[in-house]
Design a protein around this nucleic acid. Structure first.
Length: 946
RNA sequence: GCGAGUGUGGCGAAAUUGGCAGACGCACUAGACUUAGGAUCUAGCGGAGUAAUCCAUGGGGGUUCAAGUCCCUUCACUCGCACCA
């Protein structure tokens, strides 16, 4: 018996449409449940198989929840503003409006052919005047509450798209759309005060159920850091400048300061003889775009201003440089540099030969064998560690203690009045006999605190100074008998050095020798820092902040990476910003009753060369009257970014056709919030953050019921081409869902995409895998030939298990195992000569959320029962999922040695006896003593023998 | 560099959260039925071995009666962020 899936699918799609089967009724007594997928750009290339994956996944949930008696809102609409739509229109020489209309038609047809249970009555596009009227209205609310303002800011400018780009769109210094290098340009822009919401957006995450990685993305984007502002006097000026630092505890180690080249004080403080050089450097920086600035991060550049800052804690005069490694846009645009404990500062200091001052010392504490002993006295000691390189090979001089076997660098006490270098040379000569040593430099010193020195029988507190040098000649003098008895020389090669060292402190020295010395960025004990000495990082930060506040030269400060939202686009295809400029009154908002401000119909919608929106060319649109004084005025010609319309569309779906408000409070209170929102990982940072900001603002002015309107957010993995690469026309690996629907049917495609693998991970397309799923559906169809007239379930236990498995799997997005559970049920039913209608009914019912057409058809054709879409979801009884017997595994010392079918009711003692009775098990037990037996009920017995 | 994640047969993947590794599917092999089909059914399918068994979840070490799962260490890949002081 064959079937025509095309006819079946068309039949049910028509039925659903005509009967409004999936209409969500606001105010119904049923429990509301709001499932949302990101509405797509109706791009020219049509629906992608990736869309099918997430829409099917959410559709399955929606269909199941409806059958579970919930009032499900599963809407769809169109995010139709924005550059891609405009670009498509320019290329194809049609008006964006027409292009959008065409594309929406295609998309909608494709979606309907896949049988998604959207409530099409709530459909809208962001480009509908009835919708963007409210986007504009909400912008006016931002303006009226002081949240929108105009500012001249350096912006990212794409010379090719002739448009300003947000920081996000210009990520990495290239235009996200066309890949052209972005340049900096000053421009007057509308801004939204998003930075005011930094803390609220961070805290709000606690009231959501977003996936952990989604929350992390948001947290990173907001970029909170707790630190301090520190004020520095400038020598010879009455001005002070402020730096932001998270490590004010290292202030004693500040040896210079750096300003961003754009810092406003630069010209003023630069001394005469440095003016030319500074000007040249600043010029070079404006020419560099951000890409080049970040790419050049291998080599630090900068110029001395000639000016000096005065360190507030010790009055020291330290030079002020400018460098582009300091960003004007973060913090205060100026920093204090602590090269000893910051990698970037270290690099800069090395290059410009600036002093590096250690203020934190690494602190090792004895543990285990080297932990301090109560019965031994505590001694203080200052020692030198000599790291001496072999004259010709990549090896280092070490000594092995004969009594204890320790291997370490040469080490010894520093005598009264001796410096580390002299002490090091003396120690090497005494211990090894080598004479001709050159010490190159001294490394940072470290503490080796509270440890037991076994060779001397005392506890020690050591301050260890490490010097690095080279042995010039292997000639050696005879060393004393005592020294000979203590230790012998070993040369250890560089690659074995770290692992060879016996003590932690020497390992640390070895690590720094092998991997290169740099800034010490780890925590330790403060040194050379007066009142901070001996404190750890946290204590020192608190102490320093108190000190700064007491002396009025600094304060605690929290900084965020997130900046205000640049809201203007010099584009045609966006919501016009409803603001009017009047010479007399300045910027004036349009009257709300005059909204929407429609986009005019024009012949040319390509951007102008000077960066103005194409709207600027339409004089009778631009010229208007001032709503305030009635005089002549001009409209704003910039439009909104496409993030605007998508920042609140999920609210509109709750009340899609309201012409009195963007959505009524009543409707929003009924639906409450989006219960389950699915989208791409690429939108988890920006779109989600914008949408949350938008909602929080509306909440604060009393227009939405909750501060967070989205509860769960999940993201799907991509569908890749069969070669494992991203689908693209140029790679020729694109799969068009239309072709699949035609060849195999929507149900097969849906089932395959659910079965393809972990929903949150990327998956490669496989046509063979798809065929397998088609075969699965065909086999279910053929089950209709085996129906008998009996009642009840043929495989009762398995059916109850399957109901349980499919229900829980769908709820936790484990679609692949839900499908596999149904395959197992099918395999078992096929083994029966005949099956009951109830058997088949439960199988098609459970599969219905994933493959809705064929299951509905089978149900109707074989008269199994009421239409699935309106029937209650199958339920299971927990006790009926339990097997009566199971295969008990018997292990001996953890290895399987036997198996036995036993009843579920078998007691633990019985299990033990049965286990021992197995012949093969007895072979293993013979001649051994049973130490213990571990019994895991309903699973296994493990016999531990000796 | 920092952060997150992944690593299991020829392939996509499962594994009740510490209890028989590889469910389910694909591909493959053999057979059946057939008059050719991209159909269906049966059996097999991680590696070695005639077998009993042994070896296998990127590598190394550890905890445990028992480790894909927990701990330490190391490698590889992917994705975010990237001079954020």
């Amino acid at each position: 018996m064959n079937y025509d899936f095309k006819k079946i699918e068309a039949k049910w799609q028509k039925y659903w449409e005509e009967h409004n089967t999936f209409e969500a009724v606001t105010g119904s007594d049923k429990k509301p449940y709001y499932i949302l997928v990101e509405f797509p750009y109706p791009s020219g290339s049509g629906l992608h198989v990736g869309h099918v994956r997430s829409y099917t996944a959410q559709d399955a949930i929606a269909r199941m929840k409806r059958m579970q008696g919930m009032n499900v809102l599963y809407p769809m609409g169109w995010d139709a503003f924005g550059a891609p739509a405009e670009q498509y229109a320019i290329q194809n020489h049609i008006h964006p409006k027409d292009a959008v209309r065409e594309n929406i038609k295609t998309f909608k047809g494709q979606m309907q052919s896949l049988g998604f249970s959207f409530d099409w009555k709530r459909e809208f596009a962001t480009t509908d005047p009835e919708y963007y009227k409210w986007t504009q209205w909400q912008f006016l609310q931002f303006y009226k509450h002081g949240m929108a303002y105009k500012d001249t800011v350096p912006v990212n400018w794409c010379p090719k798209c002739k448009s300003v780009l947000s920081n996000e769109d210009a990520a990495g210094g290239v235009c996200e759309r066309c890949g052209t290098s972005v340049v900096q340009k000053e421009k007057s822009q509308w801004m939204l005060r998003m930075s005011d919401y930094s803390e609220d957006l961070l805290k709000g995450l606690d009231d959501t159920n977003f996936a952990e990685k989604v929350k992390l993305g948001q947290i990173n984007w907001i970029g909170k850091s707790i630190g301090a502002h520190v004020d520095f006097q400038i020598k010879g000026h009455d001005k002070t400048f402020t730096v932001f630092t998270t490590r004010c505890d290292t202030l004693y180690g500040a040896t210079y300061c750096v300003f961003a080249p754009e810092h406003p004080y630069v010209d003023e403080i630069t001394t005469e003889e440095h003016k030319a050089e500074i000007a040249a450097y600043k010029e070079a920086c404006t020419l560099k775009n951000e890409m080049e600035r970040t790419e050049l991060n291998k080599e630090k550049t900068g110029v001395f201003t000639g000016a000096y800052a005065i360190n507030p804690v010790n009055g020291e005069e330290i030079p002020i440089y400018i460098s582009d490694y300091v960003l004007a846009s973060y913090g205060t645009g100026s920093i204090m540099a602590v090269p000893a404990h910051d990698d970037r500062d270290y690099e800069f200091a090395k290059k410009f030969h600036l002093p590096i001052r250690q203020v934190i010392a690494k602190n090792f504490v004895g543990e285990g064998d080297s932990a301090i002993r109560k019965d031994a006295p505590m001694t203080e000691r200052k020692v030198v560690v000599a790291v001496i390189k072999h004259p010709t090979e990549e090896k280092y001089l070490c000594v092995r203690n004969k009594k204890f076997g320790w291997l370490n660098f040469v080490m010894g006490g520093i005598e009264e009045g001796e410096d580390p270098t002299t002490a090091a040379i003396r120690e090497v000569q005494e211990e090894t006999g080598y004479q001709d040593i050159t010490i190159d430099h001294e490394m940072e010193f470290i503490y080796y605190d509270n440890f037991y020195a076994a060779h001397k029988g005392v506890n020690r507190h050591i301050e260890a100074h490490t010097v690095v040098g080279v042995l010039n000649s292997l000639e050696a003098k005879e060393i004393s008998k005592e020294e000979q008895d203590i230790a012998e020389v070993e040369w250890i090669s560089k690659d074995k050095l770290i692992e060879s060292m016996s003590t932690e402190a020497h390992k640390y020295d070895a690590f720094r020798v092998v991997n290169g010395e740099g800034a010490m960025t780890e925590d330790g004990v403060h040194v050379h820092s007066e009142n901070l000495d001996g404190l750890d990082k946290e204590e020192a930060i608190h102490t320093m902040i108190d000190w700064l506040e007491e002396h009025h030269c600094g304060t605690k400060k929290i900084n965020y990476k997130m900046r205000d939202w640049i809201f203007s686009r010099q584009r045609f295809w966006g919501e016009p910003i409803p603001m009017i400029y009047c010479e007399k009154c300045g910027w004036v908002p349009m009257k709300e009753e005059d909204l929407p401000l429609l986009l005019p119909d024009v012949a040319e919608y390509e951007p102008t060369d000077n960066g103005e929106s194409p709207l600027a060319k339409i004089e009778d649109w631009v010229n208007t009257t001032c709503p305030c004084c009635g005089g002549p005025a001009k409209r704003e010609t910039d439009t909104m970014p496409n993030w605007a319309g998508s920042s609140w569309y999920f609210l509109r779906f709750m009340d899609a056709h309201n012409d009195q408000a963007f959505a009524s409070m009543e409707a929003m209170k009924y639906w409450n919030r989006v219960d389950w929102y699915n989208g791409g990982m690429e939108h988890t940072a920006r779109h989600l953050l914008y949408a949350r900001f938008w909602v929080q603002f509306l909440y604060n002015i009393g227009l939405v019921p909750n501060k967070e309107m989205i509860w769960t957010r999940v993201s799907h993995g991509m569908i890749l081409g069969s070669n494992g690469e991203k689908m693209s026309k140029s790679k020729g690996n694109v799969i068009n869902p239309d072709d699949i629907v035609k060849e195999m049917g929507a149900d097969a495609l849906r089932t395959y995409e659910m079965f393809i693998g972990d929903y949150e991970k990327d998956a490669s397309w496989s046509t063979n895998g798809l065929k397998g799923c088609k075969k699965f559906l065909d086999r279910i169809w053929r089950l209709q030939d085996r129906l008998n007239d009996k009642q009840g379930y043929t495989k009762e236990t398995l059916i109850h298990q399957t109901i349980k498995k499919v229900t829980t799997d769908l709820n936790s997005m484990k679609y692949n195992t839900a499908v596999s559970a149904l395959m197992i049920l099918l395999n078992e039913l096929e083994k029966e000569e005949t099956i009951t209608k109830e058997d088949l009914r439960v199988l098609v019912h459970l599969l219905n959320p994933i493959a809705p057409h064929i299951t509905e058809e089978i149900n109707e054709r074989s008269v199994l029962g009421e239409m699935l879409a309106i029937s209650p979801w199958p339920t299971y009884e927990e006790e009926k999922t339990e097997e009566e017997s199971y295969e008990m595994v018997v292990q001996v010392n953890g290895k399987v040695r036997g198996k036995m079918e036993v009843s579920t009711s078998t007691s633990e003692d019985e299990m033990k006896e049965l286990a021992k009775s197995i012949e093969n098990v007895q072979n293993y037990l013979e001649g051994h003593e049973i130490v213990k037996m571990i019994v895991i009920p309903k699973k296994l017995v493990n016999i531990v023998i000796r």
